[in-house]
């Protein structure tokens, strides 16, 4: 009985202290402590993340061995088709450049980029945030957009530490950013939605959004430049209140497999 009372007392004390600590977190009381431990743990996390990724790669490779032969045949066929498309694409490249200029989309050469490796991910929700190995000492600050090499927006900096930063991914339910249908110029808000990836919402009924259109950033209301690619519209539907249209947007990259990312510090 005495032992049980002691057990209950200890449990209660820890629970009370736990609750107390949890409510102190938003005041930033633990940020220096977190910064200290994360700085120490980052090299280990980075190594561990790489080992995990190569382990995953090996598993995927072993699982796909039976498909390799068929894939090889397909690739040969595809290679022939691609060769014929190369010539066609070179002319389209010029056209694309011209269209970009017309739409005022900014190519990535215009940004001051900081390259960074992903060293950790949210273990509870893999599409919520990632940790990168650059922080305030590299000039990173909150709100900066984060892209992958080919100019695709993946998220924004949400917390900054001296040598690390937390990137809130677009697919996080707390993320929202102004987006625009690149084909029709219809504006809306891209937000993360669990299980669906991204949703372009708040699009007025009178505007046109179509399946297959690219969604890019509109550059309104944040530090995110105009014209960064977000994804492709997969499905168009009515909002729940039936006042707006919304579209499910398929991201161009798999957020759980991010490795090298670039933080846009500012426009050159």
């Amino acid at each position: 009985m005495k032992q049980l009372t002691s057990k209950i007392t200890k449990t209660l004390i820890i629970l009370i202290v736990g609750f107390f600590l949890v409510f102190l977190n938003p005041k930033g009381l633990f940020d220096p402590l977190r910064d200290f431990f994360i700085r120490i743990a980052t090299p280990f996390e980075r190594a561990s993340y790489n080992v995990g990724k190569s382990f995953r790669g090996t598993i995927d490779f072993l699982g796909s061995i039976s498909d390799l032969r068929k894939e090889n045949e397909d690739l040969l066929r595809e290679n022939n088709e691609l060769s014929s498309q190369v010539a066609e694409l070179s002319s389209e490249k010029n056209e694309n450049k011209m269209l970009r200029e017309q739409m005022d989309l900014v190519p990535k050469e215009d940004f001051d980029l900081v390259s960074s490796f992903v060293s950790a991910q949210d273990p509870q929700r893999l599409d919520s945030w990632v940790l990168i190995d650059k922080g305030s000492s590299d000039g990173i600050s909150e709100g900066m957009p984060v892209i992958v090499s080919n100019g695709i927006l993946v998220g924004r900096i949400s917390e900054v530490y001296s040598s690390n930063a937390k990137v809130e991914l677009l697919s996080s339910p707390t993320s929202s950013i102004n987006g625009v249908d690149a084909a029709t110029n219809s504006r809306g808000i891209v937000r993360g939605e669990y299980g669906l990836g991204l949703v372009l919402g708040m699009v007025p009924q009178s505007d046109t959004i179509s399946q297959g259109d690219d969604v890019v950033t509109s550059g309104l209301g944040s530090d995110t430049p105009k014209g960064l690619l977000i994804g492709k519209i997969k499905e168009v539907r009515m909002s729940q209140d039936r006042l707006f249209q919304e579209a499910i947007v398929a991201p161009r990259v798999k957020y759980s497999k991010l490795d090298l990312v670039f933080v846009i510090k500012n426009k050159r």
């Binding site: 449990t11 820890i14 202290v17 977190n25 977190r34 431990f37 949210d122």
Partner: peptide
């Protein structure tokens, strides 16, 4: 308690959040 602390720190959860369910689980399991 130590494991909860490091889990919360490295997983960017509010410090103290993990210890609440884990201690209750420990109590129940015991």
């Amino acid at each position: 308690v130590v494991l909860s602390f490091f889990s919360d720190i490295l997983s960017f959860r509010p410090v103290g959040l993990s210890v609440i369910p884990l201690v209750l689980i420990a109590f129940g399991v015991s």
